[in-house]
Write a protein that binds this DNA or RNA. Sequence first.
DNA 1: CGTGTAAGGAATTCTGACACG
DNA 2: CGTGTAAGGAATTCTGACACG
Lengths: 108, 108
Amino acid sequence: MTEGPSYKERKVITIGVVSELTGLSERQIRYYEERKLVYPERSPKGNRKYSFADVELLIDIANKREEGVQTFEIRQDMIRAEKRKEKKMRKQLLRGEINARFGIQKER
Amino acid sequence: MTEGPSYKERKVITIGVVSELTGLSERQIRYYEERKLVYPERSPKGNRKYSFADVELLIDIANKREEGVQTFEIRQDMIRAEKRKEKKMRKQLLRGEINARFGIQKER
DNA sequence: CGTGTAAGGAATTCTGACACG
DNA sequence: CGTGTAAGGAATTCTGACACG
């Protein structure tokens, strides 16, 4: 273990490979970006680059689409999930701070 | 955790990205393949695809080359390391078999 | 030996648009 | 709304070769 944003998060996969990996057409993949469901990075000359995490997300999206869920709804769900996570983080942070002051004290 | 050959081993990165990631020229990367130091897969139409493991290996190779080590020597070292690993595996396997027969027995 | 480069072609990717439903 | 497709261009990748040292 050495690197930073581990293998799963590094944006290194081109759209053609993502298409193979997900079974989605390039058109679909680009459209889901337009609908703000995925955020690939861009190479210097403008080529999209995705992470394994993006690939997995796209597979989830593909499944929901098959169930007839609209991109708008998928996006709403993602935003909600994101907010819940943030809330949880804040709670954790707060608890940490309280512990630091009033919790297990180091003797001095 | 779901997939098989984890993120580190999946061959999904094109040579251009590998070049950016390693700082090596595409020429160098292809040459190291010719010298049997790396084994990318090929896409249906013949494009090379590398894994993160390959990228790390190429970085190691780049470092050795800077030290003046020749590709031939690098290859020898890789083969030797591989053999040591295999030997270790066989030893382990053997020990496992012995244990299975004469080691901790299940009562019956 | 290791790497750069020009060469020519094939495959990839990009954007904006029209189509259908 | 979600996706296919043809269009034209730019960038990518591939191979085999010549060059230099």
